[in-house]
Design a protein around this nucleic acid. Sequence first.
DNA 1: CTCTATCGACTTGCATGGTAGCCACGAGGG
DNA 2: CCCTCGTGGCTACCATGCAAGTCGATAGAG
Lengths: 242, 242
Amino acid sequence: MQESSRTAEPGRRAQRNGGVSIQAGVADRLRRKITKGDLTPGSSLSEVALAEAFGVSRTPIREALKQLQTEGLVEIRPRVGTFVSTPSRREVTELFQMKELLEAAAARLLAFRGQVPELDRLRASVRAADEAVAAGDVERYAELVHEFHELLIEGADNGKLEAHYRILMNQLAYHRLVRTSLAQPRRLVNSNAEHHRVLEYIEAKDGDGAERVMREHVRASHHALVAGMETQDRSSAGEEER
Amino acid sequence: MQESSRTAEPGRRAQRNGGVSIQAGVADRLRRKITKGDLTPGSSLSEVALAEAFGVSRTPIREALKQLQTEGLVEIRPRVGTFVSTPSRREVTELFQMKELLEAAAARLLAFRGQVPELDRLRASVRAADEAVAAGDVERYAELVHEFHELLIEGADNGKLEAHYRILMNQLAYHRLVRTSLAQPRRLVNSNAEHHRVLEYIEAKDGDGAERVMREHVRASHHALVAGMETQDRSSAGEEER
DNA sequence: CTCTATCGACTTGCATGGTAGCCACGAGGG
DNA sequence: CCCTCGTGGCTACCATGCAAGTCGATAGAG
């Protein structure tokens, strides 16, 4: 039931505390495992199990879990247990609305900033994406999608926006989702084309236009994902519903 | 240095745990004290001091502080101390950008929802604000400003948006700020007029228009606040700069 | 008088043990 | 056979003690 087998190195950096607190390290590791999908939604996260898995006491584990709870990644049910959050269908919709909101705003802000280093990196990322599409390398393109959105957010030059965006993406476990949306037919080339359009508007310093096309892009991405998830559900027959 | 004198009832609900955990209660109380201004930015929050003030051990205090840290309300400097966060000038600007973003989006969403109960309550709030303006009751109007924005957010019917909005407002300690912005000449009547315009667009189901005027309203509010803070600084001579 | 080094009081970080509540399993009665 | 009640094992919650780092005060050397 528990993939504590993955923690092959108990307390790897517990002793050689590399300048960061134990709880911070634990929180980072757990966060990564959740967003990457190593810990699937609903998994139980027992304090004692994690404590001996990481080779530390329960205290820093508790504090890490507490933090992940306020980040919305886990759910602590008092006297019962701690579990990886399983976002409801409604929550996923809400998260995508927020994603649309923040990314569109970021595109707008970046457009108004003019020529900044992030823009060069964005151009380079889009070029690399073109190559990945030409080569049909979905895996590579998925990475570059992530990079594109990340650069956009950073380019907005607003730390609060960045922080809230990261929290949202973690809740969505976005890494896992990108691949299923790209599995939809023609989604890959469409996605790339949409990125191009966004970049064009930004380069033209047309903030309103950039915001608009970015909105549409996120919407299209969302629709592709929903379609992809339905086909997934259909293929994997009757599973636990929520 | 510490206003622990306020905690006249040590551990009021420590024994009679009214269904909520101690840490949750502590976090709530501290959060309120910070946003209300009872705890000014920079104040020291010693674990032991809070522990005996609340009549509990250090553990739940620690966890509450940890949560407030990830909410951005306090800053924990390892082995040094925990302090109420003092947002930099840049952070305040960023927070207002986010406020503008989220509230404008909320106005847009509410407009598209059509006739919902929140809309009635919004109308009632605006009417009450008219009376407060007519009576020159700034205190009452400040409350209603808060209510207006709160109803707008709730009316957007998006839990994630609501959650992130609350975090932002807490970081700004918005309650404290409203009064100084309203102290600006003519700001009170202008603010009220802007609220009316927002409501009109929402009632007309003009999402784009509502979003636009809401953006302008938040900007105007921000400018009034900056102006108000400058006059405050001027009046209170040379104080600790940041 | 000035600078430096050491000491000590303070802080948070972590470990550990006992407690209260929840939940499922199983025995017993209907 | 079904339903009810008790009990044991599990969980997170809280209290407490110790350790380690930080920073200021203070005494001493130059």
